[in-house]
Design a binder for these strands. Structure first.
Lengths: 246, 246
DNA sequence: TTATCCTATTTGTCTGACAAATATAAAATA
DNA sequence: TATTTTATATTTGTCAGACAAATAGGATAA
């Protein structure tokens, strides 16, 4: 049923701070507080929860981190609208995350990028096409038909931007280091794949994608995007990569 | 260029805790620490950074929250592999997030769900088909051809599961409250849309999706998924929804 | 050699203190 | 009286010290 119930097997014992954090979030929920609403001062909260101010502050520190609460001296604390991916940003440290997590993130990114095709197509206007054209025209290919990281970045960032979805845009920024890191770490895999694609002329270029958008060919665009990401799909399908240090 | 550079305009002044948090993350990066590696004890870190132990602990509390560090009494602290979406889980509080953020999350979810089609298709095996069949067979429709939340949940969760991507699965769990909340809040929008779909016989059912998977019709499956989510797309296209309180 | 106990160390928590900032009240000025 | 300035009180940010609980590692006993 709940396939993910094993995610919360926290080995380390639950500390007071954890409990207070939970209690605070519950408090916000129960009181139906909204951004802008003020919450009691530290001492009051600490007393109400029966903990020291330091414990309360450690819990508050967590909530402050993703902008769920804001405090100004003497003015008390107010609830604010949190940054959804703010927390994620901090823990995306490719050198600390294990390969499995990194692969999952790459798969996540690729899936999302395919998934936005519909949104891109729905939102597309002439200004977007013009911008994309400029990006494609100044795009630089550096070896075996691969785009430079900057060109690649500009083009796909523009696609995200066209969706008009800020969370998706932010996600792209957060997850970029992972793609860059994996491409570098496993270049022994990607290089020959790219050479093969180049040789067989099967590459889907940014220009191709743009042309399909210009032609208002929705299905063609979606399918071309899938092809464009083919190297990643084949990479992810082979789960047993060596460490890339050969 | 950097379309998101305005994300960090933090109004509130940067506190010592924020700085220490940054310094700690830098320290991990620079020292190339990996999960399992131990880090200096609190007092040493505090002294090294020239701050009190309480400030250091507030920063550590944040890192502990996503499982980036773990501490055991007397045994010191060790780095651990963080939970990528752990932070996100905490701030997805539909009643606190604004409508724009909620819409963005819904769009994110729909895009991702469309995007996983390729991964689902790639990973699909007979056991998966059997499981899906069971889920579809015991699925319950409750009004105007709409599935009950449980049936809907089971089917789509299974699709996520087939991808074999833990981050994607976890994401589904995190974001579910948003879909549920929005569907309830804006049922005045969704109800007539669903009635219309039912009347015109254009509904793509879970059975339809399963049949396409059985037939190994990849393109058909992807396109059917887009149709299956049509109500959401049309909902998101109309940005100026009233508060749903009419 | 193995099992048990002791001690020192480290984290978790509490309390009290003070500086900095500022909302509010009080006082001074036009 | 209305407005500006000043003073006070309050609240957060930070530090320091204390102690309990847990336990690693050594000392001691079997």
């Amino acid at each position: 049923m709940a396939a993910l119930s094993n995610l919360k097997i926290t080995n380390h014992q639950i500390t007071l701070v954890d409990q207070v954090e939970e209690k605070l979030l519950d408090y916000f929920r129960v009181m139906k507080l909204k951004p802008g609403d003020s919450i009691p001062k530290e001492q009051e909260l600490a007393d109400a929860l029966g903990v020291g101010r330091s414990v309360l502050r450690e819990a508050l520190s967590r909530l402050r981190m993703f902008g769920l609460v804001e405090t100004r001296t003497r003015r008390g604390m107010i609830l604010t609208e949190p940054s959804i991916l703010g927390g994620m940003k901090r823990v995306i440290l490719p050198r600390i995350l294990g390969d499995e997590a990194l692969f999952d993130l790459l798969g996540f990114r690729v899936a999302l990028e395919i998934g936005i095709c519909e949104l891109v197509y729905n939102n597309l206007n002439d200004k977007h096409l013009e911008d994309l054209e400029n990006i494609v025209n100044r795009g630089v290919v550096f070896n075996y038909g691969e785009y430079t990281p900057v060109s690649e970045y500009e083009f796909h960032t523009k696609l995200y931007e066209i969706t008009g979805n800020k969370t998706i845009m932010e996600f792209q920024e957060v997850i970029r280091p992972v793609s860059v890191f994996l491409k570098e770490k496993f270049k022994a895999y990607f290089l020959p794949v790219n050479m093969e694609i180049e040789k067989t002329g099967k590459r889907v270029t940014h220009m191709d994608l743009l042309d399909l958008l210009k032609k208002k060919d929705k299905k063609g665009f979606s399918q071309a995007m899938v092809k464009h990401f083919a190297p990643y799909y084949s990479f992810l399908r082979k789960k047993n990569h060596s460490n890339g240090n050969n």
